[in-house]
Design a protein around this nucleic acid. Structure first.
Lengths: 214, 214
DNA sequence: ATAATATCAGAACGACTGTTCGGCGTCAAG
DNA sequence: CTTGACGCCGAACAGTCGTTCTGATATTAT
């Protein structure tokens, strides 16, 4: 299925099919393609659709209305993306600001990630790290952390904890011998030991994201 | 349009429409819904579709074949996701393995990210970091870096550079006074100075991703 | 120039599809 | 019991849709 050169008309058809599908959620009929691409006969549309199929640009379902599929990259379904609210910023000196479940958020205040990366967990939210206080967790200024709210943790989890000395940090969590060991991700740094009742888990880090300017 | 309770049959219809759309790229016809949901009459399907529309679960285009749209969350278009090939792993001791433009890759060997994050740049590829050699760039073992291939860089870019002493590192790039300063992201570490002709830029880091096990 | 091929137009056919209508059974309110 | 709302069934209609056929025009090769 080597891709050959397309005629102007065929390019226009592909483009229209894309846009139509985008707008309506279903593919156009042969006649709709004809009207939009100024092709007077359905047979010509059909003729060119067959060429597009033979060259691997589309796939068709015979005798099925709107049975046209664009074959582009492997289809990543719409359902594989989800919006995660950007709840705010995280400082070392404050508890994590949990998102208000009832509050809405503007599109700008959310990031979209594929479900492949973040799974189907409910209640996920994102925080942008401010300052280099999390540097021991290999997280730097401006990074975005996606968190799952929970108040317990398993050994090894990277969690946001609120210590009674009034700081929030991200550390790996280990419960051992009745005390809590908070292990920095950076192996060159030493762990912190704390009394469990002074450690308040706020959430677990699911993903860290760092973008560089273009 | 408050969402009311759905009957078993209506739930099944919604589910079928979702799956059908997922599988075929276009919505089912009334009769296809009827066959799959064991509804003998098209009028019953139509009847329930109208109810679903009134309650805000779907939207319909009158007198249009397959004119059914699911109304779900804010639609993140399929075109907002893209696959980025996972070209391989990156060690400190080897040059970056650039992806072969002609080679294909299996779905498992790619990650999908939203266009919002990675933009529309061509030729992007991802590498999984192996080892802690990039720790000075705040990148740890297992992290995924998305790179854009290029052989030049602007001041401040985080680039993968191949030094003549046979190591690959990720450093911030600065050209100053005829020499190249490679600045570790970790501010506590000292920069490396090098002769430009000993520095070979392989690509620029666009994004860093770190996932934690669920 | 001539033939072969590619592209297109128009029309028609049959199957597919959305819509509508009359009727049936159930169930709760009046 | 009657009434009406609800969910359902079967059938039929008209327009839509993919397909196919005949033939015309344009492009290219020989």
């Amino acid at each position: 299925m080597a891709k050959k050169k397309l005629s102007e008309r065929q390019k226009r058809m592909i483009e229209f099919i894309q846009d139509f599908w985008q707008d309506n959620g279903y593919p156009p009929t042969i006649r709709e393609i004809g009207e939009n691409c100024e092709i007077s006969s359905t047979s010509v549309v059909n003729y060119n659709l067959n060429i597009l199929e033979k060259n691997g640009y589309i796939s068709r379902d015979g005798r099925v209305s709107r049975g046209i599929r664009l074959v582009t990259e492997p289809v990543v379904s719409e359902r594989d993306s989800r919006l995660i609210p950007l709840a705010g910023r995280i400082f070392a000196s404050q508890p994590v600001a949990m998102p208000d479940a009832t509050s809405t958020f503007a599109p700008d205040e959310a990031i979209s990630l594929t479900r492949e990366l973040v799974g189907n967990e409910e209640g996920l939210f994102a925080l942008q790290v401010q300052g280099d206080s999390m540097i021991d967790a290999m997280i730097s200024d401006g990074d975005i952390v996606v968190m799952k709210p929970q108040i317990t943790a398993n050994n090894g989890d990277l969690v946001a904890v609120w210590l009674n000395d009034d700081t929030t940090t991200l550390k790996h969590f280990y419960k051992e011998n009745g005390r809590v060991r908070l292990q920095p991700a950076n192996p060159t740094m030493d762990p912190i030991f704390a009394d469990p009742k002074n450690v308040q888990i706020q959430g677990k880090v699911m993903l860290v994201l760092r973008q560089y300017k273009v």
